[in-house]
Design a protein around this nucleic acid. Sequence first.
RNA 1: GCCGAUGUGGCGGAACUGGCAGACGCACGGGACUUAAAAUCCCGCGGUCCUUAAAGACCGUACCGGUUCGAUUCCGGUCAUCGGCACCA
Length: 833
Amino acid sequence: MQEKYLFSEIESKWQKQWVDRKDYKADDHSDKPKYYALAMFPYPSGNLHMGHVRNYSIVDVIARYKRMMGFNVLHPIGWDSFGLPAENAAIKNQTPPAEWTWKNIANMKRQLQEMGISYDWDREVATCHPDYYKFTQWMFLEFYKHGLVYKKKAAVNWCPSCATVLANEQVVDGACERCDTEVTKKDLEQWFFKITDYAQVLLDDLEKLKGWPEKVKTMQKNWIGRSEGTEVEFSVENREDKIRVYTTRVDTIFGVSYVVLAPEHPLVQELIAGTEYEQEVQSFISRMKGLNEIARTSTETEKEGLFTGAYCLNPYNGKKVPIWIANYVLFDYGTGAVMGVPAHDERDFEFAAKYNLPIKTVILPEGTPAVEKDAPLQAAFTGEGIMVNSGEYDGLKNMDAWDKMSAQAERDGFGERKVNFRLRDWLISRQRYWGAPIPMVYCDHCGIVPVPQDQLPVILPDDVVFKAGENPLTSSESFKQTTCPTCGGKAFRETDTMDTFMCSSWYFLRYTDPQNNKLPFSKEAADQWMNVDQYVGGVEHAILHLLYSRFFTKALRDFGYLKVDEPFENLLTQGMVCLGGAKMSKSKGNVVSPEEIISKYGADTARLFILFAAPPERDLEWSDQGVEGCYRFLNRVWRLAAQYEDVLKGQPSNETAHLQNRNFGELDKAAKDMRRQTHQTIQRVTSDIGVRFNFNTAVSSIMELVNALYLYKEQSNVNVAAAGEAMESILLLLSPFAPHMSEEIWSELGHEESIHSREWPKVDESALVQDEVTVVLQVNGKLRERIQVPAQISAEELEALVRSLPKLVEWIQGKEIQKVITVPGKLVNVVVK
RNA sequence: GCCGAUGUGGCGGAACUGGCAGACGCACGGGACUUAAAAUCCCGCGGUCCUUAAAGACCGUACCGGUUCGAUUCCGGUCAUCGGCACCA
């Protein structure tokens, strides 16, 4: 072995071998149990950042560990390569988006290989390749066939800077998720996916996801936002029209003092036409339209409303109720109309106080004397209680009244129980070039016609002009002009492309059958590999990507293409990589480049540090000195191995059964201790990687074993077999973390086969057995002494031993012993008074 | 406002099922080796007090309280920080 640890030579040598020999190829026909390990695929921005390094190092440790545990592992990678940055770069540098993207992919692929991640490169995919997006288009058509895609005109989110519409999920605090520009509303005809058809099952099945963080499930639950209530009809006075109102508190309906419509509600126009209120109401509406959604509907915005001059009738008591419009009512939730019950809703209370509307109590807290039922309220009472001022329902508990009143609405035909969701349909069209074209054609004769699936892909053209603020596809005549697939007449292609989240909603399925050119994947391949056993990525995808992927998987299962209905069995959301307390980012200027670290210390050091510095879910604070520490540790391992080289080479070969059948001969205490620590470490690292995902503690216990072996070799009488066993264990346990170095040492020690194809070390239970153990002696719970006792000692013997200790008198200070608690092998607590 | 996390030395973090708080690493201090430096190796490293020293005592896991022989761990409350949702009727 070289005296010095030359990481650069070692790493490039093995990286080349692993790729050339296809060491990490997943086997489609294997007897071993399968394991699918997946990191969220990257957008090819140009360079890997530390967040990538963390993500891929975590998954690589899992993949390498599972391989050594005897699994047939699928560990693929690909590129989420459609999207705006490529197009923006095209406008800026006059380079075609494809060229920019493929150049970035090549560079990042090289960087990934320099990290030594064990990917099956034969399954690499790129969503911008026609062989891939052909099937994204196929998905669109398949969903269309099943009635889950429709086109409608709606007030949609528009990002003026990106010049495209956005999905609700891509609007964060009223701004574009990507560029932070304030989002406006535009009335446009757009393509939607009917994710709301799956709202209930997407919610219910969160229960099944035992391996997902609670946090992510809660976020999805909030986003789906199920609410149970009642829809009730108020008829408009002197008109045929009815106003349907959605409420979760039908029990308060005798307390209604007004009904509010959203300003966009079409009935408003009819109610005010030709009345004295018309002008004022119109100017209110146009003012509301000028505001963006956040400014209009944030909790901080003051409630604003206006009387329309019209009245409607409460179906429960026939009372006249004024009709208002107000900023806070959303047109696209529920029915776009709500009832106002100031006494029992905080928001309505505030509104009524401002506009001097009546506040009528209809529920009293239990135990309130009935004489107080008309006492003025200081605030809305939103709790449970007893019904008053509510006709035949007086005296009931309000929850019972809720049931009975809903039943009455259904019986008398003026309403019904109703479930509403916050989740809206997914808007997938984008007015941009660098995405998968929507495979639809407009024919004067036949209308909207889908492109037949066997004519895919609809190829993205390259004769386009890039201009800021314009969809480049509209500039390509060769693309737009086509013939109708149905009648063969003149027709035009849809020029919108698909949201890139479409591409990423099924990529994990493509990996199971990446070469298939008939279908996105075969049922056999998908059923063999799915689900993803372990998915790892950032929490920023908690809603968008993870919800859409669940939707796709469920729909494809319903179409018959799959067995599973949840894509990701276990999910790990890794923390951010920070420097100076803030997430590393170009804009903050606090980035450390992975390339720089790798060239200075090597990939093994980079991987080791990023796994050692914090548990994976937590944010990680970057530390240059911490990196140095890991580099020192690897050098320490190297020197240790170099010193043991001759010893290990002289050992009988253990190619078939690791560490078995060693001849240890007579073991003295130090040798026994060495063996015990070796096997304790194996036990610990196995559970830290396989069960707890605490890679940081796995690394630290390997460090402890290295430290122990350094001390052991200073012994006068070193047991060569025990030391050899420790050294080999260190290499095997370290191999998922530092794959290059462990491979190099392994091969230097004369092994022909890769260390990564070896079996994971097994715990020798007999080595864990101790003759003597340290027991803690406490008096009233306070630590007094540690004593060495035989490991097999019984509780009675232990108590007797402690009672006979001469020093005990001193500790109990003349007090009387009440009882003695013994935990064999651990502790004795003497309770005195 | 609602929901979810988190809170331990100078720092990153450990303590797995209620049983030795601070593993491992970083930083720092001291020593060995060296002409010197780097590298390496060894020792120390939560606080306060006491002692010539060895040793010892007390306090200490955000704060207050509870359960328990025993609480970083369980329960109740408070505070702080972070994240998500937020006029969804």
